[in-house]
Design a protein around this nucleic acid. Structure first.
Lengths: 84, 84
DNA sequence: ATGCATTTGTCCGTATGTATG
DNA sequence: TCATACATACGGACAAATGCA
């Protein structure tokens, strides 16, 4: 699975933030709908071409933003939108 | 292990803990009275929509807290309140 | 006593997240 | 990145304990 290279721009931004923002963008644009199950973190790391821990940091970032919900033993899912 | 325990990453909510806390709340609010027989673990699992082993983990948690008593072949019952 | 239904107990296999090296 | 170990989640299968007719 060759992912588009635009995931990582050449800026000084931390890699995990680039990954987080890439996924966040896909969620906010509606490409990933609420309830959608994301690939397993290990698979995501392989697919994107970054380290496992990098994906985990990105997931924690998205979790903190309330964009995803993680359930141990089940997976990671796009959260319901929260209006502000 | 060099870090103090106060540093807790906002981890995901474990399903069995959610189940345990939900039942614990019902007991502590008096919705479930001492001696009350809870549904069978497997029925509970079906009703709540989680796996059997997950309910069993939750039951073990409640048992450890002294909130319920389990008897093989009979069922699970709300324990008598223990003052501290 | 034997059988049946109900309920908890145990184990297995697979998938996933967590943590560390 | 890769490897290792462990906890959690789920479903299935079978065993053990209880109560009842």
């Amino acid at each position: 699975m060759t992912e588009p290279p635009e995931i990582r721009d050449s800026g000084p931004e931390l890699v995990y933030m680039q990954v987080a923002n890439w996924i966040a963008g896909r969620i906010e644009r509606g490409e990933l709908k609420p309830g959608h199950k994301l690939p397993a973190e290990r698979d995501l790391a392989t697919q994107i071409g970054v380290g496992y821990m990098t994906v985990r940091r990105a997931m924690r970032e998205l979790r903190d933003r309330g964009l995803i919900i993680t359930v141990v033993g089940r997976g990671t899912f796009v959260a319901e939108p929260r209006d502000t």
